[in-house]
Design a binder for these strands. Structure first.
Lengths: 343, 343
DNA sequence: CAAAACAACTTAATCAAATAAGAAAAATAA
DNA sequence: TTATTTTTCTTATTTGATTAAGTTGTTTTG
């Protein structure tokens, strides 16, 4: 399908009596022609209704579209409703905008990336995509890839030290050997249901951030001589309030009742705080609750949440910068232990 | 940037000892070569790691990318958090998927559509984009356009008769000349704030669905001899719970207190029901509340909401079908008066 | 058995730009 | 003034596909 006016760079050049190269340069390489001529050409293009070089042709020749695909871990819905993801996205877009790059959101649930792979300059992957088949597709595309919160061999990445952070927050939460600890984990197993993760050993094959966090928790617990029973780890398939509340209620009402709740996201922790309060439990006297992420709301909750604060906007900015600079290294960002009153 | 393996259709053809046309036909026109040869070629491509024709080149030559842009009225966030929009999107994707078309979401807040216009086959516009500059850009693109819930001269569209529907629901809600009516309107004026719309006449220039609905309300009211005061129309900039609650509270606490509330969306009406209940008002005795859209939740509310039920999924399907069939007519879908207990 | 029809390919033009290399004109240096 | 450099623009190739038109060879038909 053609543009309604059917104008191409060549036709515009003919009308103006210059070569197509000159018109092309007017758009792309200002140093290749006189400023006067350039202004004439651009004005004439505007006049004629020529909105600039066809992006498909430009892409074919240059091999670059100035579009970056942000591969989401899950659905678009998750991405916009999760405050952490939101902040990350703001970080990404702020840097891309400054560099005249456009963002294309791509769901990690998609069956294939083939439909867009030729149209983008590369990929920023925010968390391991739900559909693992996408990863080999990304690799064979040969395009730039920056991963965030997970790794692909040989590709640039942005992470925090999840194990260390989890160790620290767990260490904050526990006191005595007698503490009864439960974990509200995020996507520990490949299930769409809330479920308990009985066979902790089985998880080793997977190396998502959730598993690193679990390792961190375990280390802190074993140092204090606490044993984390197999029936004390809950899996929540997605970080949303409904699911988190359900899981929290389940964890809080099991016997013996836990007095420490290690939550893998603030959204989960805040839901747990609400549920505990509803059940008449006192925080931190009856139950100590810690989160992970450090979202805005965690500062305003009652009690204020003790959590690991991540700089998610910086994470986004860093990912975008690595992408733009073609920098292939593995960045490890810092985090902060946010002291609250929930433990 | 090249693919890591640097394979092109031509190279694959050379390796296999056939012409590039034959390889191309293997992918696109099965009737142009023997089934045996076709299978050989596709198998060889898989073997070699050639993932199919370059989409940029294909687009340049064919003028079609199989990508449809869904231009949202607002941000992505709004789109995924609004249940009506959500249902619409499901309708669109279900039809597109069946036709091997991909969807690209494009925010109606964007400054320009130029960055994607060459990469897509056309546009489905769901509601007038927040940035009105996009409309002339869409028109001059010369590409297929289907509008939903608004119109662009000469383009296909999907609508319901908003004025008639609003007339009917208002007619349901009012009883006597003495009724004190307030309207909770959606984006009636170009403001990001909740505000009252004093100068109803000034609105005529704009012909959004909200204004048609307002016309419908007005017609019903004037037939019953009710005068809708200028200070009785509220503008809510976006259909979300927080803003709706605020506006509802404001409307319910003004003097003289209204006893009929015409809401331009169910989200607004449900928020109004909650606020009214909190204020100790009885529905429908003290205040009659009606909505618009007919979302799932409106059936489960207490009291059940009286509203106009739209078939949003059908709307999405219809829009996608008009797009695919290159059908240029203006479809007007039916709706249903959903009788509840709120008036 | 020749002519027509068909099947299975190939050749070559085309899509709309970007850019290296070349040419002409202008500016600068010797 | 002539030689050299620089500026400014043009020519021609290239990007990776699609497809109309042409070329075989094979089958069908009268």
């Amino acid at each position: 399908m053609k543009k309604s006016n059917g104008l191409t760079l060549k036709k515009v050049a003919d009308i103006l009596g210059v070569s197509n190269a000159t018109v092309s340069n007017a758009f792309n390489r200002p140093d290749q022609l006189s400023e006067k001529r350039r202004k004439e050409i651009l004005a004439a293009c505007h006049e004629l209704g020529y909105s600039g070089p066809n992006q498909a042709a430009r892409l074919l020749r240059k091999g670059s579209s100035n579009i970056v695909a942000l591969v989401l871990p899950d659905s678009l819905e998750y991405m916009v409703s999760d405050p952490v993801a939101n902040q990350f996205m703001r970080g990404v877009t702020s840097v891309l905008e400054k560099n005249n790059l456009n963002l294309l959101l791509y769901s990690g649930q998609s069956q294939s990336i083939q439909s867009v792979v030729d149209f983008v300059d590369g990929f920023i992957c925010y968390g391991a995509p739900r559909n693992p088949k996408l990863i080999p597709q990304l690799k064979t595309s040969g395009k730039k890839i920056v991963t965030v919160d997970f790794d692909i061999e040989g590709m640039a990445s942005v992470n925090i030290d999840n194990e260390q952070a989890a160790y620290q927050i767990a260490d904050q939460a526990i006191r005595l050997e007698q503490d009864n600890v439960a974990v509200l984990g995020l996507r520990l197993v490949d299930s769409e249901q809330i479920c308990r993760v009985y066979d902790k050993e089985l998880l080793d094959c997977n190396s998502s951030i959730s598993h690193r966090r679990l390792d961190g928790y375990s280390k802190a617990l074993s140092e204090k001589g606490i044993n984390l029973g197999g029936d004390r780890i809950w899996n929540i398939p997605e970080s949303n309030i409904k699911l988190a509340s359900l899981a929290a209620r389940e964890a809080l009402s099991c016997q013996p009742q836990p007095n420490v709740l290690l939550c893998m996201s603030d959204l989960i922790a805040l839901a747990a705080i609400r549920e505990a309060t509803v059940m008449g439990l006192k925080i931190p006297e009856d139950i100590r609750i810690v989160g992970f992420d450090g979202i805005e709301e965690s500062l305003r909750s009652t009690p204020k949440l003790t959590t690991i604060h991540q700089y998610s906007d910086l994470k986004g900015e860093t990912a975008a910068k690595l992408f733009i600079d073609n920098d292939n290294h593995n960045e490890v960002l810092s985090y902060e232990l946010q002291m609250g009153d929930s433990c």
